[in-house]
């Protein structure tokens, strides 16, 4: 019996999507094969990592995650600069957690002002993510679109309940949107169709099919991403041929397992290394499922993942 490599023939291709503004763009997407299946297709733009910056000082982070940012934690613009200058961030993911009405309830105008300040301070593409409250996000993200005109921010989550308002504003001020849906391939496709009908250009759409943390529902998200990639590449489903974003850090760093000290749970080992690996392994899984942009927090988790991407791409 002779041996022959069984290859998949891919009819579809993920859209190449440039992010950021002239001079500072990062392009994602463009795959013509399953993640890292380089023996049968291409990945012209390897996955990228966006480093998290928060609109206000986080209250529930474990020391492990706080430590690298302790000196800048109260100043989002300085925080973003540190990510770029010290940790080499290729993108910033600005999280507007403080706008949540159940949290600090920062107003839309204030949020727009802080976002503008941060966006002026950075020279890499910037993702801006609302708190997840549909109505509040509408107000906040619209205000941000306006004051940051021309920066081609990547704004989200744009969901079924607010895609019209945010989509239209995003087109008006030339930003990219993150279309977010809860772990369901049909919902993901549906929202992309709706955005298309609204005339949001295809190269201005990134999709976020939801992410859970390792041990907390990750498996469902992993499978939905895999299925989206199959539909896009093999079944040539045009409305799913978009780059995928995985907003994973906030899921991982709220779990118990990144926080428990070794003294309380000796079998779980060193709390710092464990937290870093919980984040890095969540990232590794979604990478293998098809994510193009990873929103991450800990610099050491990020270097592990970067190295892993490089090795899968170039053969170390």
């Amino acid at each position: 019996m002779s041996f022959e490599v069984p290859k998949v023939s891919y009819a579809g291709k993920i859209r190449k999507t440039p992010l950021g503004q002239e001079g500072n763009t990062v392009t994602v997407g463009g795959e013509s094969c399953y993640p890292f299946h380089l023996f049968e297709g291409e990945m012209p733009c390897p996955p990228r990592i966006a480093m998290e910056v928060y609109d206000s000082e986080p209250e529930d982070w474990p020391d492990t995650a706080l430590e690298p940012f302790a000196d800048v934690i109260k100043d989002p613009a300085a925080w973003a600069r540190k990510c770029i200058d010290t940790y080499g961030a290729e993108m910033i993911a600005f999280q507007l957690a403080g706008t949540d009405p159940n949290d600090k309830n920062i107003t839309a105008d204030e949020a727009a002002e802080i976002t503008k300040k941060v966006s002026d301070a950075v020279d890499v593409p910037m993702i801006v993510l609302g708190c997840g409250n549909v109505d509040k996000d509408t107000d906040v993200l619209k205000a941000i679109c306006e004051v940051c005109e021309g920066k081609n921010l990547i704004i989200g989550p744009v969901v079924e309940g607010n895609y019209r308002a945010i989509g239209a504003t995003a087109i008006g001020y030339n930003h990219t949107v993150v279309a977010s849906t809860p772990i369901d391939i049909n919902l993901a496709k549906q929202l992309n169709i709706l955005l298309g009908n609204l005339n949001v250009p295809d190269e201005k759409i990134i999709i976020d099919p939801s992410t859970g943390a390792l041990g907390y529902g990750l498996e469902y998200c992993y499978s939905v991403m895999e299925r989206i990639r199959m539909a896009a590449l093999v079944q040539e489903d045009e409305r799913l041929q978009f780059p995928i974003l995985a907003n994973l850090a906030r899921e991982v760093w709220k779990t118990k397992e990144v926080k428990v000290l070794e003294s309380e749970a000796p079998l779980l080992g060193d709390v710092k290394k464990r937290g870093i690996l919980m984040e890095a392994l969540t990232a590794q899984c979604v990478l293998l499922a098809g994510a193009d942009i990873l929103v991450m927090r800990h610099p050491e988790a990020i270097s592990l993942v970067k190295e892993s991407i490089k090795d899968l791409m170039t053969g170390n």
Binding site: A289, L304, V305
Partner: peptide, 30 residues
Amino acid sequence: MKETMRACQMTAKYGGVIVMSEIKGHSVFP
């Protein structure tokens, strides 16, 4: 740390026996 990343890759994509240099909580638990 790096070894654990490799092992995770092989966990998702079809590794059977995955041989590690050490078994330590911070690595094997994730």
